[in-house]
Design a protein around this nucleic acid. Structure first.
Lengths: 364, 364
DNA sequence: CTGAAAGCGCTAACAT
DNA sequence: ATGTTAGCGCTTTCAG
């Protein structure tokens, strides 16, 4: 296994290459000095083609040749250059993913599952950050596209016309995720944020809470959940005609501290509040902690519902009732769809609603 | 901005190209059908080289030409192919990062800062996952290296000889981070885990706790912190001669729930425990929650110290005393060092101890 | 089953 | 300031 990879190559044969046709006494261009496919070919005394075949489709080469070439590869310490391979074949084996913020815990499971599934098939993930606003969406996309990815996975619906145009022009398989739309650029894997908001409203109604409130981050999808939540509450008669939904809005990657301060603000403005829908589990955990500090009993005096069902949600005290999204499932499926497209296998269903699930635990 | 990128190209000049030298009546090879540098050159009536210069070093081209070429680029909807560019120039503008697990919150800030700093300089981050054990380290590295990154950032010290050999042979700038060693592969940005463990022991001693314990994940660095913690406690006389440190060890991406169950296990085995050093903040948060459930007053009856100073640490109740690591700083610096190397600017210091800081809050 | 040639789209090195 | 040529390292295409 641990060959001395930096050993001088001492190729098995002399460089009996035909000299370049001496067009004119001109221009060199030394290579990178690294081991190439040709070096392997020389040692194995086969053509570059055969080496390429051993690497990319060993089934088409007799076992003996495969063995011969493999040992030559090990001997010279060859590492394929996928930049060159990608250029020649038109398949980079690179998949781009665009997330609002790497730091946010929400898409982490999707990214992780995506990366792992891709890796298992020989593809590599390339991560790009778009920020929460749509501003540089098109620009970041261009950067990603210039790498000629074999597919691009977005954790949002593409907004700007420019970005949509770039994507369409690139002819790269595109998967929009974590949302629904009637007009996807290409493929779609997600769920309805509006339905999720409505479901929480239904639950609050069913459990008999009379003074619901909303604590939300200011990103567009959280706001859509909140809007649907409010609408449904109104339908249930939990909101009087002229009355707005008690709401506190905090900046987007909503951390625990925003949950604590958010609850404080909420209770100051609306002391009667007896149930809060938080746009992320982190926010909800902050609310749980702040409630504890204030001696408010959860869920008796204050019910709390989160969103995401992050790893910690089951272990808070009390356990967090929350909307579970199968983030890992999204990532896995996205990887499979991209690969299926690239390898010209079935196109498969172009769109999937993976739904959500209201997980009932102690907090509501 | 939003040009019709898929418009037919209708190039400004006829294809008055010299026909290929007709070696023999042979072989075509249709291109990808996409817009290339040549298409832009034809429209702008300049050479490919000039277009390349406008893109890569506009300063060396007169403003008028830049303008001309830029409008041609917009007109035909050209997106550079960095696979080809990277192959030709030997600079991929790709930087690889290897993390144990994407999902873990610990390295997130490093990855985020790395990605952002790289992006600002036109580099793209490529993420690879190594897992917590050293098993496939060499293999994952090979995959990453086959993309010919301009640099590779590791959130650990490279262990296996095979991996070290691959890295050395590749001649790629390597930055090992989040640790210290006397024998780095190349560059190093980190801190001493042993010193961090000792510092917590000193703090417990200074605050007069008499029955310290350790709750740790099973990853190697957490274990090293724990070992130094124990050693220093012993030096302080807080551990009797034959007495081992009360310890509970949990599987590596230590989640909140492990903190709760870990404390329960600890108190069952060592009821006298009055101070716990947790190997991650998540674990510590779990301990805080479990202590709350048990009616244990923190820090009076139980002191808690975490590690990482994650975003939530300041807002727990009470605030979490923890060891702060400047993860974002590591990422930023790593990006700068890689870029400096690639652009042959100063090599800069090859190694940096960024230290750590014990942040005192309410929990201890 | 194996090999030779051509060329993927770009940039480095020279030439003007 | 701009153009010409060769070639980065690989895979496709076609021939044997």
């Amino acid at each position: 296994m641990s060959q001395p990879f930096d050993a001088p190559l001492s190729l098995g044969i002399m460089s009996s290459e035909i000299q370049p046709p001496a067009t004119l006494g001109r221009r060199p261009r030394r290579g990178s000095g690294r081991v190439t496919l040709m070096d392997v070919a020389k040692v194995a005394r086969v053509s570059a083609q055969t080496v390429s075949r051993v690497i990319n489709s060993p089934d088409t080469v007799p076992a003996a040749t495969v063995e011969l070439v493999r040992s030559a590869i090990a001997q010279v310490g060859y590492v394929p250059n996928l930049l060159a391979g990608g250029l020649a074949s038109g398949r980079s084996r690179l998949v781009a993913a665009l997330v609002p913020a790497i730091g946010g815990p929400v898409f982490l499971q999707t990214i992780e599952a995506l990366s792992q599934t891709l890796g298992r098939h020989g593809y590599q993930l390339m991560l790009g950050e778009s920020g929460f606003d749509d501003a540089d969406e098109a620009e970041v996309l261009q950067n990603l596209l210039s790498r000629r990815p074999d597919g691009i996975v977005l954790t949002r619906i593409v907004q700007s016309a420019a970005a949509r145009a770039h994507l369409a022009a690139s002819r790269v398989p595109v998967i929009e995720t974590w949302d629904q739309t009637d007009d996807p650029v290409d493929m779609l894997i997600g769920f309805s944020h509006a339905d999720a908001g409505s479901a929480v409203a239904d639950y609050f109604c069913q459990r008999g809470f009379s003074h619901p409130a909303l604590l939300t981050g200011d990103d567009p999808r959280a706001i859509r959940r909140g809007a649907a939540f409010e609408t449904r509450l109104r339908e249930h008669g939990l909101l009087a005609a002229g009355q707005g939904l008690p709401t506190v809005q905090v900046p987007a990657p909503a951390p625990l501290g925003s949950g604590r301060r958010g609850l404080a603000d909420l209770l100051k403005a609306y002391p009667a509040t007896d149930a809060v829908f938080c746009s992320t589990d982190m926010l909800a955990l902050g609310v749980l902690i702040e409630a504890g500090e204030r001696g408010l009993a959860v869920p008796r005096q204050l019910a709390v519902v989160g969103f995401g069902d992050l790893a910690f949600a089951a272990d808070t005290a009390p356990g967090l009732t929350t909307v579970r999204i199968d983030g890992a499932g999204i990532g896995r499926l996205a990887a499979e769809w991209v690969i299926a497209r690239v390898e010209r296998r079935q196109i498969g269903p172009q769109s999937r609603d993976i739904g959500f699930e209201l997980v009932r635990r102690g907090s509501a």
